[in-house]
C-alpha cells in the first residue's frame, strides 16, 4: 500500500506544498499562467499553525474504508482501484457536506474546478494526484517538499524508517549523545518561536 507519510517535525511552514498542489490542479499546470485562468485553482493540502507556531501539512489520508465515501448520498465519492485513492466524481456531488461532517481530519474543501462546467461549488478535496501517480510520479506536494516533511512510498517502508529511529533512540546508552531527529539550529529556532506572545494564538 502506497501512502504519504507526514513527518511533522520536519515541516517549517513554507507552504510550498500548497502552491504546488494548486498548480497541479489548475488547467494550465503552470504557476504563471494559473492566475489568469477563469477558475482559480486552490490548494487541497493545508499547512496550518498549531501550538507554539508549529505547523502540520494536513491532507486527505485516503482512508479505507473512507468515512466520507460511506456517507456520500449520491455515490460521488469513489475509490480508484489502481492507486487506492479516494476520488470525487464532480458531476455527482450535490455539495451537501455530509463528507465534511464524516471526515475525521477536516480536509474536505468545497470550490470550483475547471474540470466540469457548472456554476456551483463541489467537493474538491485532494485526489492524491492520481494522474501523476499513473505516470510514475510522486504527488505534487511531496515533490515540492524539500525538507522531507511529506514522503511518498510504501507504507510499511516509511513506518520502518520511523521505527528504526525510535529503536536507535531507545537503545542508545544514557551516556551516549542522543541522536537528534532535527538539527540543533531548528530546535533553537522553535524554542525562540515559542517565546513570542502570539505563539499559541492561531
Amino acid at each position: 500500500m502506497k501512502t504519504i507519510m507526514v513527518f511533522p517535525e520536519r515541516c517549517i511552514g513554507c507552504k510550498h506544498c500548497e502552491i504546488a498542489c494548486a498548480v497541479e490542479h489548475s488547467k494550465s499546470k503552470d504557476l504563471f499562467a494559473m492566475f489568469s485562468e477563469e477558475v482559480l485553482s486552490k490548494p487541497r493540502i493545508h499547512v496550518e499553525v498549531g501550538e507554539d507556531l508549529l505547523t502540520f501539512p494536513n491532507r486527505c489520508r485516503h482512508c479505507n474504508p473512507a468515512p466520507c465515501m460511506e456517507v456520500c448520498p449520491t455515490g460521488a465519492i469513489k475509490r480508484d482501484e489502481e492507486t487506492g485513492s479516494v476520488i470525487v466524481e464532480y458531476g455527482k456531488c450535490i455539495a451537501c457536506g455530509m463528507c465534511a461532517i464524516a471526515c475525521p481530519f477536516g480536509i474536505i474543501s468545497f470550490g470550483k474546478t475547471y474540470e466540469i462546467i457548472i456554476d456551483r461549488d463541489v467537493n474538491v478535496k485532494c485526489d492524491n494526484c492520481i494522474e501523476r501517480q499513473k505516470e510514475g510520479k510522486e504527488p505534487a506536494c511531496v515533490e515540492a517538499c524539500k525538507t522531507g516533511a511529506l514522503v511518498f512510498g510504501d507504507a510499511d517502508d516509511l513506518i520502518k524508517l520511523k521505527r528504526q529511529s525510535v529503536t536507535r533512540n531507545i537503545t542508545s546508552s544514557p551516556d551516549a549523545k542522543e541522536e537528534p531527529t532535527v538539527p540543533e539550529n531548528i530546535v533553537l529556532w522553535r524554542e525562540l518561536n515559542k517565546k513570542y506572545s502570539h505563539s499559541s494564538k492561531y
Binding site: 517549517i12 513554507c14 496550518e48 507556531l53 505547523t55 525538507t147 494564538k201
Partner: peptide, 14 residues
C-alpha cells in the same frame, strides 16, 4: 494581517 500570514515561511525565517 499577522494572523492571516501564519504560518510564515520557514525558509524565509531561517
Amino acid at each position: 494581517r499577522l494572523e492571516k500570514q501564519q504560518p510564515q515561511c520557514g525558509y524565509g525565517q531561517l
